[in-house]
């Protein structure tokens, strides 16, 4: 029997497509006014406070700390989930799942490794996919001595020894021109396809793609280049 697939194939995602012409077009299309709309810059989150609160939840199951985190993150996570297309009830369910997991895993949280906000975001992302797909998101196996060992002995690159990489990328993200930052935000945060972004911002599709591409290339500049592959090209 021959099985015929009628589902549209989502691979490759639009975002991975390589369009050399798009860059040319991008140079020719002037920025539209919507382009430069300002992303409201909120006060920096109280990173230290949140880290301490989450550590307190992990160390002594501190309910007050947990409640404070819930009050700060629950509405924001829900907003993120709604923007990503979850219905009201589902968004609420995912928020609950997220916080149950935060409580259960808080003992594993290490403020030295990640900011509380990042840790909470990754849990919300994974629970979102688990809940939507009823299938576990493939998580990174972070405590894998064998892999660690293989990777460190095999890669004596100074690139990875550079502990400031995240800081560099953060700096690169905040230094992105407004129009690129805005598109990156839409693609990343709101899970919009490139076509949806193009429709909403009234920027031609090719420009959307090339701006995202430029943005990623700038972020890429935040890292030490992959010497071994680029030199040999």
């Amino acid at each position: 029997m021959i099985a015929v697939c009628t589902k549209p194939c989502a691979w490759p995602p639009e975002s991975l497509a390589f369009r050399p012409l798009a860059r040319l077009k991008q140079l020719m299309v002037p920025a539209t006014p919507q382009d430069t709309a300002h992303i409201p810059a909120a006060a920096p989150p109280q990173t230290q406070t949140h880290n301490a609160l989450l550590a307190a939840v992990g160390a002594r199951q501190d309910r007050d700390a947990f409640r404070t985190l819930f009050e700060y993150y629950a509405p924001r996570l829900k907003s993120y989930l709604l923007k990503n297309g979850a219905a009201e009830a589902l968004a609420e369910e995912i928020v609950q799942n997220t916080f149950v997991t935060i409580w259960e895993k808080a003992a594993q949280y290490d403020p030295q490794k990640a900011a509380a906000s990042t840790w909470i975001f990754t849990i919300a992302r994974n629970r979102r996919i688990d809940t939507l797909r009823r299938e576990k998101y493939v998580e990174v196996d972070s405590d894998n001595p064998a892999l660690e060992h293989a990777a460190t002995t095999d890669a004596p690159d100074d690139a990875y020894a550079d502990t400031a990489t995240i800081e560099k990328l953060r700096a690169a993200i905040s230094a992105l021109p407004e129009e690129q930052a805005k598109l990156l935000r839409m693609a990343f945060f709101e899970d919009k396809t490139h076509q949806a972004i193009a429709d909403e911002t009234r920027i031609p599709l090719g420009t959307v793609k090339s701006r995202l591409r430029l943005a990623l290339e700038k972020l890429r500049g935040g890292f030490t280049p992959r010497k071994k592959t680029e030199e040999s090209q």
């Binding site: 906000s117 919300a124 990343f188």
Partner: peptide, 19 residues
């Protein structure tokens, strides 16, 4: 390890957007 750092940075970007 380098890819892990990049991923952490992108996750930090997601967290920043939420905050």
């Amino acid at each position: 390890p380098l890819a892990r750092r990049k991923l952490e940075a992108f996750e930090a970007m997601g967290a920043k957007m939420i905050c």
